[in-house]
Design a protein around this nucleic acid. Structure first.
Length: 237
DNA sequence: CGACTTTGACCAGCGC
DNA sequence: GCGCTGGTCAAAGTCG
């Protein structure tokens, strides 16, 4: 389904740290993360030759051979220009930060997305309500629970990396100060709440920024990729 | 025909 | 309070 030029493989699992953080990836060699010290694993992420560099202070250091020289101003994904800090190359989801607040509303609203399940019954129960009223009712019951998030940057010709999971696009938006639209995807597995956003870096359109939000409750749909990714994590981490 | 994508509209949150 | 922006919905269109 997905083009696999970037050949990304993402195993199940997620960064347990309440803050999601970002990595940079260059097309140099295989990538696996998270690094030592990060609880839980994201599994091996095979970018067909990528190297992750954990840029946030306080994160475990990684061997220099896995680091990527980066130019300033990269990243800060999701943050407006005013929110960008000159101290770090990449921002993460601060618990109290503006960035986190901006994105947090996407947390636990998946029940309204299972339109084949809950949504239809909701509609049946609200026949007397207008569409707008139903929508408002749903929105008001939306809870703000932040899912763990993880974002990384990939040098890739294709927007959607093959991470082993099946995604359904549910939205696209042109965000401010960028010429490339941001795409929104949701895992197609029933009851799986994971979402991801994909956009190209304004400063360098060759770079694809992918942000995962949530935790898969199932295995990747690609068995081959899964086993390949497992090899990476066993080898590197 | 089901699964998926596109796209305009809507809404909440934030800054001023 | 108002306008702007990002995130999501959902109908319509497309594809296999």
């Amino acid at each position: 389904m997905f083009p696999s030029k970037a050949n990304a493989v993402l195993n199940q699992g997620f960064v347990e740290d309440p803050m999601s953080f970002c990595t940079q990836i260059s097309p140099l060699s295989h990538l696996s993360f998270p690094p030592h010290g990060i609880q839980q694993t994201l599994g091996g992420l095979n970018m067909g030759g990528g190297v992750a560099s954990y840029l946030k202070e306080g994160l475990p250091s990684i061997p220099s051979q896995y680091r990527v020289a980066s130019s300033g101003g990269l990243g800060q994904f999701g943050a407006s220009s005013e929110q960008r800090s000159s101290n770090s190359l990449w921002s993460y989801d601060e618990e109290e930060g503006d960035l986190g607040n901006k994105i947090s509303s996407a947390g636990e609203d998946n029940h309204k997305y299972n339109k084949n399940n809950s949504s239809s019954s909701n509609n049946n129960n609200n026949n007397s309500l207008s569409v707008g009223a139903i929508r408002m009712k749903k929105l008001k019951t939306r809870k703000k629970v932040r899912e763990p998030r993880f974002c990384f940057k990939t040098l890739s010709e294709v927007d959607v990396l093959d991470d082993g999971y099946k995604w359904r696009k549910y939205g696209q938006k042109v965000v401010k100060n960028t010429q490339h639209p941001r795409s929104y995807y949701r895992c197609t597995e029933s009851n799986c709440q994971v979402k991801k956003r994909v956009e190209r870096l304004a400063e360098d359109p060759r770079m694809v920024i992918t942000t995962y939000e949530g935790r898969h409750i199932h295995s990747p749909s690609h068995d081959d990729d899964e086993s390949r990714a497992s090899d990476h994590i066993n080898f590197l981490w």
